[in-house]
Amino acid sequence: MRLKSAGKYLKSYGLGVQNAMAYRTDFWLGLVSGVFPLMIQLFIWNAVYTAAPGSEVYGYTHDQMIAYTIMAIVVGRLISTGFEYEIAGDIKNGGLNKFIVQPISYFWYRMMCFYGTKSIQLAAFTLLLLALLLGFSWQSTLSLSDDRIVWFGISLLFALILNGMIFYLLSLLAFWMTEVWAVFIGFNLLTNIMSGGVFPLDIFGPAVNRVLQWLPFPYTIYFPVNIWSGKISEAEIGTGLVIQAIWTVVAALVASSCWRYGIKKYVAVGG
C-alpha cells in the first residue's frame, strides 16, 4: 500500500525528468541568454578592479568577485522554478479539478515534477562545473577545498528546495487574484535581486544587508555562492544550512494553511 502511494510520486518525478529531456534546448538557450548579463558584469568588475588595483571591493578579491558573478547567474538559473505559471493556470482555468478528485496530493505532484526537471539540469550543470574546475584551475585561485565543494553541493540542494517552497507559496496567490502573471514576473526579479543573483548583497551597505539576512532570499543564491567563493567561513556554513532548513519548514507550513483557505475559495471553473 505504502509502495503504491510512493509509486505515483515517483511517476510524477519521472514526468519532470521527461519534461527536462524534452525541452533541453530551452534550458541551454536559457543558459546562453545568461551569458550576456554575465559579460556585462565581468566587464564592469574588470573595469572597477583596474581602477582600484590590488584592492578588495566589498571584501571580495578580484577572483572571488568573478567566481561570485559566474556562480550567481548559474545558481539563479538552476533554482528557478517556472511552475508557478502552471499552478496559476490550473487554478484559473479549472485544471485543478482533476487533481481534487484523484487520490494524489497536488503539492507533492508539483514538487516531484519540479525535482525531476531539476535533477537533470543539476546533472548537466555538474558536468559543466567539473569541466570548468579542470579548465580554469579555480581550485588554486580560490583555495577551494574538497570540503567546500561538498558543502556547496548540499547548500545548493537546500536552496533548490527552499526556492521551490517559496514559489509554491507565491503561486497560491492565484486563489485570490485572477491575473497574477505580472506579480510573478515582478516578484521573480525582485527576489533575484534580494537573493544576490545580480550583484553581491554587500553593495547595498551593511544596514540593508542586515535586514535582508532576516529574509529567506539570501539563502537561495548569496549563501551557496559565497560558500563557493570562499567569503563565508567554514564555521558559518552550518548555521546557514540550519537557517535554510528553518525557512523551508516555515514556507511549507504557511503554504499548507494558505492551501486550506484557498481551496475553499476555489470555484472549479471550466469543465
Binding site: 564592469i44 573595469a47 572597477v48 581602477a51 582600484a52 571591493v57 515582478g186 526579479l189 525582485l190 535581486i193 545580480v198 550583484f199 553593495i203 547595498f204 551597505g205
Partner: peptide, 21 residues
Amino acid sequence: VFTFAKLLYVILIYQVGVDIN
C-alpha cells in the same frame, strides 16, 4: 522592479566611487 534592477548599476558605481575608463 525592472527600473530598480537597472538602478543597481548606478548604486554600484557610486558605492565604489572610482572613475571607470
